[in-house]
Simulated assay, not measured.
Amino acid sequence: MTNSSPYTSPARIAVIRARWHSDIVDRAHDSFVSEAATQLPQAQVDTFDVPGAFEMPLLAKKLAETGRYDAVVAIAFVVDGGIYRHDFVAGAVIDGLMQAQMTTGIPVFSVSLTPHNYQPADVLTAFFADHFVKKGAEAVEAVRQVLTLTAQLAPAQATRKSA
């Protein structure tokens, strides 16, 4: 079921951004906020900073449990620093974000990217910074679609429960 109709209710969205590689992560955040103003004009976006990606799942769960948010978006850039296996961190983060949404029933979106090859060279930093702008805008579209579907399902679920 594809639906391109806009989500029209006021939404409250929590955005969690990791501060490692903030120069890149902030590009997705700024893009998300800017695009949300267009696609979800009544939305309130609250931003929360955490040290790194590993801290995002617990905060996502806690924010979702407050009942104040319709969606949570987590933004991070997890790179291989040569000391530990970044894929373990990335996997734990994604698993944790999935668990947060499955436990709370609040959708949690990931703009947490893990490149295979990143070194802090100007050309790579510029590439990923630009890519994060695109990912921030795509996240708004994903949030809008899921909130629209959730709103459409709510009357059907209420009808089934009362029957």
Rank of each mutant, 00 (worst) to 15 (best):
W20P: 08
A74I: 05
P41M: 01
Q101G: 15
F132K: 12
V79H: 01
M98W: 03
D23K: 11
T38K: 12
D70Y: 07
P57V: 12
D30C: 13
R19N: 13
I106A: 05
D95M: 08
T47W: 08
F48A: 00
Y69K: 03
G67S: 08
F132C: 06
G96Y: 11
P107S: 10
V25K: 07
A71K: 00
T103I: 12
K134N: 09
D70S: 02
F109D: 04
T38F: 10
S22L: 14
A100M: 08
E65V: 01
G81I: 03
K62D: 14
I106L: 05
D122H: 07
S31E: 13
P120M: 09
A43C: 10
A126G: 02
V45Q: 07
D130G: 15
M56C: 14
D26T: 10
V50Y: 03
S22M: 07
R27V: 10
H86M: 07
A74H: 10
S112I: 15
L63S: 11
V108G: 01
F109W: 09
A43T: 01
Y84E: 06
S34N: 13
A126P: 10
V123I: 06
Y69M: 02
G82T: 14
S110M: 04
A28P: 04
G81L: 11
I24A: 13
V33L: 12
K61R: 15
R85V: 02
F48M: 00
V111D: 04
I75L: 14
M98L: 15
D70W: 00
Q42M: 13
N117Q: 14
F54P: 02
T47I: 15
S110N: 12
W20E: 14
Y84H: 12
Q119T: 04
G105S: 05
A74M: 09
G105Q: 05
D80V: 01
L113M: 08
L40F: 06
F77K: 01
T66Q: 07
V73G: 00
R27H: 09
F48H: 02
L58Q: 11
R68T: 03
S34L: 10
M98N: 14
I106S: 05
L97G: 02
S31W: 05
R85Q: 11
A37F: 02
G136A: 00
F88Y: 13
A60W: 06
V79W: 01
Y118K: 04
L63Q: 09
K135N: 05
Q101S: 09
G96M: 11
A37L: 07
Q39R: 15
F109L: 13
I83N: 04
P120T: 04
F127K: 03
G81D: 10
D95H: 10
L63F: 08
R68D: 14
V50N: 09
A60L: 14
K135T: 03
M56P: 00
A100S: 15
Q39N: 09
S110I: 08
A53H: 07
V78R: 06
V33E: 15
S31M: 10
F77G: 02
G105H: 11
L124V: 05
A90T: 13
K62P: 08
S22V: 09
M98E: 04
G67Q: 01
F132S: 10
M56I: 12
A126K: 12
T125A: 06
A129N: 03
H131S: 12
P41Q: 05
